[in-house]
Computed example of a mutant assay.
Amino acid sequence: MTSQASRRRDTAVIFQRMGRVRLFAVFMRPTAQYDVETERGRELMLDHLDWLLDLEDEGRLFAGGPFRADRDKDEEQPGCSASEGPVIDAGGVFVIGAESVEEARLIAAREPFLRAGWRTCTVRTWLLNEGRAVPVGRQVSEDFHGADPTLGTASWERVDETGKGA
């Protein structure tokens, strides 16, 4: 096992451990029409949940869920304030495997709230690099895209044949 101190300077070890798994994050934002307290809103919520479960059954859905902004204010940490605003102002996110960003956008366009005009969305390519979820993310990505060894090739990640940084 490589010690933590030596790993910090060994770009080959770092590069080898990075997941470089391409997935797509879909950030959903409610529009003015969004109201899940109405009968139509409850119907759309059930349609939305069914739709997500269909994506899960296909093996395409990596993760998903709402953001709980009302609770974030109580969880602020020094130097990490939730009151500075979100990176992307969204009501929720789901992460999927797809062949391309275009395919991810087509999948997102089928989301029931979006089709009804009750939500808008932003699709972003996301590279899952670290963490315990890398093996699961890799399986989702490969099922719908295939391995892509060119991902994550920033200059500091490139190594020569001796394993040293290029």
Rank of each mutant, 00 (worst) to 15 (best):
residue 10 D to Q: 13
residue 123 V to K: 02
residue 77 Q to T: 13
residue 86 P to V: 07
residue 155 S to H: 13
residue 111 E to H: 04
residue 127 L to V: 07
residue 135 P to W: 06
residue 139 Q to L: 11
residue 26 V to E: 01
residue 154 A to V: 06
residue 113 F to W: 03
residue 91 G to H: 10
residue 25 A to M: 07
residue 137 G to I: 02
residue 80 C to T: 12
residue 98 A to W: 02
residue 94 F to A: 05
residue 101 V to Q: 14
residue 9 R to A: 09
residue 6 S to C: 07
residue 125 T to V: 10
residue 158 R to G: 12
residue 155 S to Y: 12
residue 157 E to D: 14
residue 150 T to K: 09
residue 123 V to N: 02
residue 39 E to R: 11
residue 59 G to T: 01
residue 149 P to W: 09
residue 43 E to C: 02
residue 22 R to I: 05
residue 101 V to K: 12
residue 101 V to S: 12
residue 156 W to L: 14
residue 29 R to F: 00
residue 2 T to Y: 08
residue 123 V to Q: 03
residue 110 R to E: 15
residue 15 F to I: 14
residue 114 L to K: 05
residue 114 L to R: 03
residue 151 L to V: 12
residue 9 R to I: 12
residue 106 L to M: 13
residue 38 T to D: 00
residue 94 F to S: 05
residue 33 Q to Y: 14
residue 113 F to N: 05
residue 59 G to Y: 02
residue 109 A to W: 00
residue 84 E to N: 00
residue 164 K to Q: 15
residue 23 L to V: 10
residue 130 E to N: 06
residue 132 R to W: 14
residue 19 G to E: 02
residue 165 G to F: 07
residue 61 L to Y: 03
residue 66 P to W: 05
residue 51 W to D: 06
residue 64 G to Q: 02
residue 51 W to P: 04
residue 104 A to E: 05
residue 136 V to H: 09
residue 141 S to D: 03
residue 134 V to I: 11
residue 10 D to T: 13
residue 86 P to D: 03
residue 116 A to L: 02
residue 75 E to I: 15
residue 18 M to G: 02
residue 166 A to K: 15
residue 132 R to V: 15
residue 20 R to S: 11
residue 130 E to I: 10
residue 147 A to G: 13
residue 140 V to A: 01
residue 121 C to D: 11
residue 9 R to P: 08
residue 60 R to T: 01
residue 157 E to Y: 12
residue 3 S to L: 07
residue 15 F to H: 15
residue 11 T to I: 09
residue 3 S to N: 05
residue 7 R to G: 08
residue 154 A to W: 07
residue 37 E to P: 01
residue 114 L to P: 00
residue 18 M to E: 08
residue 120 T to N: 08
residue 20 R to L: 10
residue 34 Y to N: 09
residue 59 G to Q: 00
residue 48 H to N: 03
residue 161 E to S: 15
residue 68 R to Q: 14
residue 78 P to S: 11
residue 155 S to C: 12
residue 62 F to M: 10
residue 72 D to H: 08
residue 57 D to Q: 08
residue 151 L to R: 04
residue 1 M to V: 11
residue 24 F to T: 02
residue 97 G to D: 04
residue 97 G to Q: 03
residue 125 T to H: 11
residue 162 T to V: 15
residue 126 W to Y: 11
residue 97 G to P: 06
residue 159 V to D: 11
